[in-house]
Amino acid sequence: MRRPVISNMLIITALIMVLFLLNVALGSVSIPTRAAWNILLGAADQDPIWTNIILKSRVPQTLVAIVAGAGLAISGLHMQTVFRNPLAGPSVLGICSGASLGVAFVVLLSGSIGGVALSRMGFAGDIALTVGAIAGALAVMALIVYVSQRVKGNVTLLIIGVMIGYVANAIIGVLKYFSVEEDIRAYVVWGLGSFSRVSGNQMSLFVTMMCILLPLSFLLVKTLNLLLLGDQYARNLGLNIKRARLLVISYSGILVAVVTAYCGPINFLGLAVPHLCRAVFRTSDHRILTPACVLMGALFALACSLIARMPGIEGALPVNSVTALVGAPVVISVLFRRRKEDTAE
């Protein structure tokens, strides 16, 4: 039982390393793998342009993809468990929409009311976007946590979350209607999701934050395992349901808020990776699923980021298109295979 778990984890880790290297070596500027490897190891005698591209652009982007993927996968896992709904995911509770609303306010309103097009402001504009996204996401999350302490049913809570998402999208629609085209484009580009938007200091801040947040997920494993049994059984086993919900929703909400603020709303990954992990590891035990989701999320994000920047594609494809196009067939095929094995038993 234990051995396949460990060997699976090792295989995924090895794949992450391979994809990390590929992510660093491949791109619109072709750099020989050997040179890329040397630069990574800190060799000073390499082509300065290559060194710059790798250390300033590709490595940060790859790191961002790893932590963002891990974060979204963990938050998806938590949401699916706490709502006991396989379709729950980071975007379902309206937290993503909250972030989008925050960004929409910053991008669209500053253009129409303040007369400054943020899209032209560069660095300061980036920070404003991040702050807007975090504020929006946390506002929606606070609202949902408040509701979660008052309503009993998980389905009710889920529906309220979805409704909040609709309201946020409606307000975004109104804002768009009154905005100039240039600002709308800036907003749409943010909405496509990207691992490469973050750079420099912001990148280090983001990666540091995620490195602190991600290990915290391990503190919730026992709570999540009990929640699997349903509220009443969990309560009977000594779990304080209200507090458990508060902790799990706030934690995963903060994860989504931070990732969305820096990378834009990335769909699908948070929903799909937990399913992939359950199918591959054949377990619902969060002691295994938590590390599995961190690894699988990182792997998935790296693969998508690599495909988005395939040689021959100028710039980068929107991550959102890649996650779904690559991921959906993979997940569907894995689930189908498992279903067959289940019925064969």
């Binding site: 699997l228 049994l229 779990l239 377990t283």
Partner: peptide, 18 residues
């Protein structure tokens, strides 16, 4: 309970949670 992918032994083990 709508549980999937959990063995009988693991489920009974959750009874030891307290």
């Amino acid at each position: 309970t709508d549980l999937r992918n959990m063995s009988v032994e693991d489920l009974i083990g959750l009874g030891r949670s307290p």
